[in-house]
Amino acid sequence: MAEIMPIIAELEKRFAVTHIPLGGVPSAPPGQPAGQPAPPAQPAPQAFSVTEPIVKVDPKKILAVCSFLAASGFDYLLTVTAADFPQRIEVLYFLCSMSGRLRLELKCELPRDKPEIDSVSGVWKAALYPEREVYDLFGVRFRNHPDLRRIFLEDEFEGYPLRKDYTSDFLVKMPEVGFR
């Protein structure tokens, strides 16, 4: 855990990322000691991860951040995935370093109406297929991806199924779980 702090500090310095530490509880802003009642205009609580530190990156800087991280020892990209929220689509990158056993999660928030982001397949070839999958299921366009087309669904498919607002005649309403 300690080995990753210098890298995160470097990232914060160079690319102005936000760090959500493992286990969450972001530190209280200065002048607001913990324990005091929160001010009324507090933003919604951030999601934190129980297993690795999250670094929120501006989508425009993702390629630079990834190149920096690849050079700093994060040589393994586990996967690229996405999650659909009411106001945004989050694209997530899970990185790890084989030698140092470090783990890191990068999060980029994209607007739902035009989700576009640079592809990192130039840095890690492991991103090629997962990015196609995210395009297929969420509709996120990856710029400079060598072969961006649908991977699971047929090419003429309309819509992006894993979005929360996807409806179709095939989607069956599941009865609510409960005790009878």
Partner: peptide, 15 residues
């Protein structure tokens, strides 16, 4: 419980 609750705003990646 069958309806065990997951707390809000959490993520996890299990390898």
């Amino acid at each position: 419980s069958m309806l065990a609750r997951i707390p809000a705003n959490r993520e996890v990646l299990v390898r």
